[in-house]
Computed example of a mutant assay.
Amino acid sequence: MSDPLTNDYEARLRAWAGRELVARRPGPDPVNVPMIRHWVEAMADDNPVYLDEEAARATGRDGIVAPASMVQAWTMRGYAASVRADDAPADADELKALLAEGGYTSVVATDSEFEFHRELVPGDHVSIEETVESISPEKTTALGAGRFVSTVKTYRDASGEIVATQKWRLLRFRPAEKPAPAEQARPEALRPRPAINPDNAFWFDAAREHRLVIQRCADCKSLRHPPGPCCPQCGSFGWDTVEAQGEGHVHSYVVNHHPRHPAFDYPLVVALIELTEGTRLITNMTGVAPEDVEIGMPVVLDWLDPDPDLSLPAFRPADAKER
């Protein structure tokens, strides 16, 4: 890498002032109504002079015109041409290489200033050419040390008349080196919080006391889980709870491998447990390898306390030792 502060390097950069960066190049398509329509719809620009001939003539124009800010769009070559090495302007590559020699390998656009000479109309075929106006001395920026490269883009119609000019400025910068993060112990990830609301808060409150409760209708005495405000059997809003015995069997299960969350160990067994009381709930399994879980397996209540603010019921095989 050349020292960007040497006199020779500075002189080579200054020599670019006034040089042609992109030779005059026509856009791929003439100004046309379909592209104008796409543009104004995307920009939510409802000015009628862009699509309504009558409205445009009412303003003294000969017909519809293209939005001024579209001038760049008419000269864009499209994605395929923009990535082909043989289509890249040689002078632009030469300047890019010179800036890279000084370590200015990153780029960000900073500002653009247009001057419009006349409105474009359908049928106009626009060309673009670009010259370097100046390259600044090295500046210190929040992104890193860099140089502002100012160019002038000139847009012409098919007869060579200028329709617009654009002053365009880029910051070519040397990315600032970030200090290596200090080594420190990463805090353990918290298990995702349950969505607690007035209808289920009682259940999580009981879980924090290591009590597995089931909501019971105060009128018809039917049990229900998940909790809800109204009995699905009789429609009553009255309810109380009973404490489950903590026994049941595996009604169904899945083994989760992905996506992974740092608070869990994988593979993770998620089971649908049917309690002896008849209700079912979704919990994790403990004390068993995923390949050993079976439908109908008898299970007993266990408890998970992942952090001081959360306790959740889990189930382990009835013949497994308590943790």
Rank of each mutant, 00 (worst) to 15 (best):
P290Q: 04
H210E: 12
A244K: 03
V288L: 10
W168G: 06
A142M: 12
R191C: 09
A17M: 04
C230S: 14
E183G: 13
R118E: 01
E115N: 05
P122R: 07
G296K: 05
M297V: 03
M43D: 12
H225R: 09
T110S: 12
K167R: 11
T276V: 15
P67I: 01
N47P: 04
H257K: 08
T154K: 12
P198W: 13
A164H: 08
A23F: 07
A318H: 13
V242Y: 01
P137G: 12
W16S: 02
S134P: 06
H258D: 07
S112E: 09
P308Y: 02
P4T: 01
A23M: 09
L95Y: 08
G238T: 01
E243Q: 15
Y50H: 00
G27D: 00
F204M: 03
P298H: 02
A271K: 03
R61Q: 07
H225Q: 13
E113P: 08
L21D: 05
D205E: 15
M285S: 15
R174E: 11
D93S: 11
D52A: 05
V31E: 00
A58L: 09
A73F: 10
A56D: 03
S136L: 02
P28Q: 10
C217T: 05
S127I: 06
L51D: 00
D305A: 13
F264R: 10
P30H: 11
D52Y: 09
A289E: 05
S136Y: 03
E188I: 13
A180H: 06
A97Q: 08
R260D: 10
G60D: 01
N197D: 05
R118Y: 08
D52I: 04
I162C: 03
R186N: 13
D111P: 07
G60Q: 03
L21W: 00
Y79Q: 10
D91N: 09
A88E: 01
A97N: 11
E119V: 15
S236I: 14
P298S: 13
A42Q: 06
V83W: 00
L5M: 13
Q215G: 03
E294M: 02
A180M: 05
S2L: 12
S127D: 01
Y155M: 07
P181S: 05
P194C: 13
A73K: 07
W74D: 02
L95W: 03
R118I: 14
P259W: 02
D29P: 14
L13M: 02
L171V: 01
E161H: 13
R260A: 11
E322R: 15
R174V: 06
C217K: 07
S2K: 05
L304P: 11
M297F: 09
P227R: 06
V255P: 09
R260T: 15
R61C: 09
D307Y: 15
S69M: 15
R12N: 00
K96E: 11
L143A: 10
E294R: 14
G102Y: 02
V31L: 12
G144R: 01
D292R: 04
